[in-house]
Nucleic acid binder design. Sequence first.
DNA 1: CTGAAAGCGCTAACAG
DNA 2: CTGTTAGCGCTTTCAG
Lengths: 335, 335
Amino acid sequence: MNVTIKDVAKAAGVSVATVSRVLNNSATVSVFATEQVNNAIKTLGYNPNFLGRNLRKCETNIILAVIPSTEHAFYSDILRGMQASANENGYDILISTSNSNLVTEMRLLNMVFNRTVDAAVLLGTQLDADTLNDLNGKYNIALCCERVIGADVLTVTVDDNAGAYAAVKNLIDFGHRKIAMISTEGKANSSLDRENGYKKALADNGIEFREEYLFKGSYDYYDGSVAMEKYMSLNDRPTAVFCISDLLAVGAVKKAIRMGLKIGEDISVCGFDNIPVSGMYTPGITTVEQPCYELGRTVVEELLYGIRYNKKTSKHITLNFELISRDSARPLKKQ
Amino acid sequence: MNVTIKDVAKAAGVSVATVSRVLNNSATVSVFATEQVNNAIKTLGYNPNFLGRNLRKCETNIILAVIPSTEHAFYSDILRGMQASANENGYDILISTSNSNLVTEMRLLNMVFNRTVDAAVLLGTQLDADTLNDLNGKYNIALCCERVIGADVLTVTVDDNAGAYAAVKNLIDFGHRKIAMISTEGKANSSLDRENGYKKALADNGIEFREEYLFKGSYDYYDGSVAMEKYMSLNDRPTAVFCISDLLAVGAVKKAIRMGLKIGEDISVCGFDNIPVSGMYTPGITTVEQPCYELGRTVVEELLYGIRYNKKTSKHITLNFELISRDSARPLKKQ
DNA sequence: CTGAAAGCGCTAACAG
DNA sequence: CTGTTAGCGCTTTCAG
């Protein structure tokens, strides 16, 4: 059917081993033979069949990145970082989406079970700690962006707690005392960590935590609007809102504008992530930037290190954030 | 090293052929043997190695989707559509990003040359017609969203020309006569088609095309701002702007707001694509929606049809758009 | 309904 | 520096 290494060998007048050698630079081959082989490759239009190679070497040099969806630009830079470090090491990153669905995620993980890929990086997994620990024994997997408590698996995240703390501290420094938060329901640790950072910043500054200032909804930007509406209906309105994500912040800002409020004057809003929209929005959204590119680089580097030297790490690595000041959060006006 | 089909056969007291049969349901196997095999699979924790299977069958059941980057949510629904139709047919979609870089794109296409994947769908390719035609002879490839003139390759796009026409016609119906356009430089046919739709709508309504009302920049949202600034500096300002993409529309709107203009009153803006941001923005961006999910479904369906029946199509399929009315474009106020 | 055996394309000892 | 050969794990004739 197709032209194989055998055909090349025949055409070049050498053995398949020699062809393989020049293909992989795996041993010294005479200049003459090399030339013959390269000529044959060119004239025959030969492309090595990786299915054969992969089977033989029992590796594919592919890492699967499982993301919830491609709808959120948030993952973009993480993936770029992953790609950079993968490519430097002769690997490729292939991406697939789980829609945050456990069944889909398992179906995708099947690709590491059946050796279609060498490893998988899960960004925002639905798996529980037990499952992850099981898998980690047999396969190369890692978590990025979202840790799972009790999962003894390579994990790279931003310091969510400290990031939230800094965001809220910034609002406090702006003179805000009535600071609400928009978070998410469910067991996502990034959300919980950020809630804790929020609470700690309040406590450290003598501000009492108020249950009615904590809204928990979905990740959908629309729930930011819902939360903002709720807050603005309170007798004692907050003057600032810290959101677990920029998407929710956008929803909150949009609603506030709709209600005729001046963002940064009547109400300050701070997000988290620094997705592209935050810079594009009017007003620009003040936020906590995650070191996305570095998150991606790091997780792949560590993963490949483990594969290469066959010593699995289950390190938990925490990277630093950066506070990005824009127009959606401003000093509280004295009245 | 790992547990293979051989081990299962031994444990089940049958031949590897029988194991393979129950694995693939490829022939009738006695109830007893089936049970034995399934038990062995379970107790041994066996996972078939697809590297072996793939080599043997010379197929991977994977389709590669090559997108410029994951930063633009625009591709999200297309990919979902691709996945849906792939999964229905026992295939998986794996995604990779080209950064709109020709070299990277070729490197990725290598995955179809070396049989790592069965086919590739290129979304916004950098390849020229000759190259595409060459490849189409030997491999299964398709284009989506962006056609290439002269490429006799399966292509699925929206009707760019008609979409632009409808968008501009809508502005004209709103009473606008001074309608500018923000387009992109370079050879992208989607841009050219939309320019032509724009020009035709003008011509059909007795409006003369003015060179100074056509701005060509990059795809970056920031260039929408640049264009808007330019238009607002003209002596004879346009009252409406049609943008080749929502991203550019957002940039234009942002700048106009910055300049103190009222969107929808002082200036109307219409985009193209209907990416999520367009609904999130304040004001909402009026736009032309591409049938993304359908684009994705269709291209994979056609591609798989070609693979399955081994008759390659190089059809060019054009799907319909929908005009989405929001607040950024409104009737011109009479003065 | 089942087993034996060939072979997909490639790499890596091993022997020379 | 080079060729021979075994075999990666699997599917699929072919015979029974």
